[in-house]
Amino acid sequence: MINFQYLRTTTAKSALTLLQKDKNAKFLGGGTNLIDLMKRGVTAPEKLIDINHVPLKQIELVGSKIHIGAMATNTAVAEHPLIQEKLPLLSWALNAGASAQLRNVATVGGNMMQRTRCGYFYDTEMPCNKREAGSGCGAIDGFNRMHAIFGTSDKCIAVHPSDMCIALVALDAEVVLATPKGERKILFKDFHRLAGDTPQLDNNLKADEMIVRVEVPLNNFAKNAYYLKVRDRASYAFALVSVAAGLELQGNKIVNVRLAMGGVAHKPWRLTSAEDFLKGKEATTENFEQAAKLSMTGAKGFGENDFKLTLAPNTIIEALNLAKSKA
């Protein structure tokens, strides 16, 4: 590890000021990903600005939206009565991620900022365009069992590793950012990016901006929702494929539906065509199968991850069935 300067601040404003002073500074939240990356030599910030004492831990209902502060821990959100009652999908997704120890320190903002778990990204002796532009992609012709099947580019096929973000994108969340010019809002689905020609960029947060909170509109999906995560072991493993499903049912009719998938793309993958198809239809396995099929348009395997072309639609069907049978 290379020596770095450690700074601590207690206000969002001063955090932003400190960040603007130094291009090589990074915010330190729970540190569950950043510290690993520093130990592996993937990143070497000169300054760490500890923002754990910035009062951004609120979880509250404001009007018709639930505000979740960027510094709230994953555990605090997952266990909060408001979240469990109104946004159970988010609570389940959070609890499906990492381990209890990690969730206790990992923050909402940090969760959004976590980087891919691609093994080539972590090993500085191997090629990775995300880590080192132009060095090539080790995964495309290498070990790509965990990798993306949607929205890939010839530069990068890494996946976004978060569970929380899958639920948030499904639930139409918005992200509130502090910028030098005041606050700006961005839809959660637009926060993360596809790799394209700039795989080094995971998201659209600018270098001088800070995540302040996430806002989630109230919805009617609490009754029939499910977060299904398929993984190599029962806990503490990243998703092979995960699906966040929320159904609003009248009898067996789907009034409204939200679907998003994890482990398949460089960003949380919202399944809008499947949603459009299901809206107004009966909640039957046949319709779920049709929706799953529609979701797979444009999917492409790279060899070892070809199984996701089967697993992904299967997981969509199972998640919808489980969401339906929740009531």
């Binding site: 778990r117 093994g119 191997m126 029962a234 503490y236």
Partner: peptide, 22 residues
């Protein structure tokens, strides 16, 4: 990765020993 002779999953997050839930 046999092209490089290097391990890909050489950490406890990616090398899966069973956890209690298994």
């Amino acid at each position: 990765d046999h092209r490089y002779g290097r391990y890909i999953n050489n950490n406890f997050a990616d090398y899966h020993v069973p956890v209690n839930a298994d």
